[in-house]
Amino acid sequence: MSSILLRSRLVSLVSKRSRRLLSSDVASNPPKEPLIAAETIVSNRTPPPPPPPPPSAPASSASARKPWNFLKYSLIGALTGATASVAYVSYAYSLDEIDERTKTLRTALTINETPDDAPALDKFISMLYCAAISVPAKAAEAYLDARRAIEDQVRGYTEPYAEKLLPDLHPLEKHVYTLVLDLQETLLYSYWTREKGWQTIKRPGVDAFLEHLAQYYEIIVFSDYSNMYVDPVMERLDPKHCVRYRLGKAATKYQDGVHYRDLSKLNRDPKKIIYLSAHARENSLQPENGAVIKPYKSELDDTALVDFIPFLEFVARNPPADIRQVLASYEGHEIPAEFIRRSKEHQRKMQEQKQHGRLWRR
């Protein structure tokens, strides 16, 4: 009996304890709300209204753009064609040829004049004709004027600054020969280094060469350097002023990337011009007047200028009718050495003739 009562009490105590534990858990941890999927939330909300469609351009504005686009592309095409035509004409024809070909078109406006007593129909036709040709005629005149101005501007950089680069010779000096000298690698050698900059070395024998030949020749220096360089260099190179005239880059003719010496612009007789240069065949428009000298590259034992003195003095003392024929006879030879050989040969023949004359007299 007692055991039964003890069991019943234990069961009641355990049941009470479990109730207290359950009641404390519920109070401390309130029940959570059930989770709902995101798709369910989105579907339950009211969807926003769709954005309004962009305002459609009226059909009338699209149709209005077509003529403007056509006009724009037509103008672009016309300008492109006109530019291509002008470029081709400028490349294919000279200014004189274009002037000759368009002369009829440009004079048609003045030729086609209707008298005052002409019928009204003739006046109307003449007015239409003048209106039709006035635009191309004026365009041709504008093209010719523009091309003349451009060619004159370009000619100032490519042609010598004057038709006569030198003044007339004095009447008492008409017989004097003209000796034209190049500067670079002929009278001096200029080079540039990073350490010292530009260096100019005078060729050995320059002083004696200029001073001696100034007695026989009109000496001219013709260089493709600017006069801002030539003048101060010549002041130091030629303190005795043996050189009469100095011509620089502005006096040359620029063609195919080369500054050519045009000896025909010197206002001198071409039969009496000698052009002494290390590049007489390459930078002269009259190579038949050229006498080639060995290029100077700052060698200390160079004697090329002094070696040329006997030949040049002989030409001045015994002037030929045309120096170009004499220079042509030295083609392929070094002039100083060949002149010495010919002189010795001439002396040998003269000695033989003298001996032959003596034997004949005996």
Score class of each variant (00 low, 15 high):
P167A: 08
D182F: 03
L121Y: 09
F124M: 13
Y177C: 03
M127H: 09
L79T: 07
L144P: 02
Y189F: 15
I125T: 07
R203H: 03
I220R: 00
K196D: 11
S126F: 08
D122T: 15
K174L: 15
Q215R: 05
A139K: 02
E185A: 09
Y191A: 07
P160D: 00
H175W: 13
N112W: 13
Q184P: 06
A108P: 07
I150S: 10
D116Q: 04
K103P: 04
I125R: 08
L109M: 09
A87D: 06
R148S: 10
C130A: 14
E97D: 14
T110A: 10
Y217W: 06
L109G: 04
Y217E: 07
T186M: 08
F124W: 14
T193R: 03
D96C: 08
E151I: 01
L172F: 11
T178I: 07
A78I: 14
Q153D: 10
F209I: 02
T104D: 08
A142E: 14
R147L: 11
A146G: 12
Q199F: 06
H170C: 08
A108K: 03
I133G: 04
E141V: 15
C130S: 15
A214T: 07
A162M: 03
A137Y: 04
L179F: 02
F124N: 12
E173S: 11
L75I: 13
K196I: 09
L79Q: 05
I150W: 13
P136W: 00
R194K: 10
L183N: 00
I76F: 08
L183W: 01
A78V: 13
T178M: 05
K164N: 12
P167M: 04
S134C: 02
A108N: 05
I98T: 07
L210R: 00
E185D: 09
M127R: 13
Y129V: 09
E97R: 14
F209S: 00
V176G: 03
I111K: 12
K202W: 05
L95N: 01
K123W: 02
A162E: 05
G77W: 15
A78G: 09
A108V: 07
A162I: 01
E141R: 13
D207F: 08
H170N: 12
A139I: 04
V154A: 14
D116L: 07
A149F: 08
Y216D: 13
E159R: 02
L75F: 09
D122Q: 14
V86W: 13
N112A: 15
E100C: 08
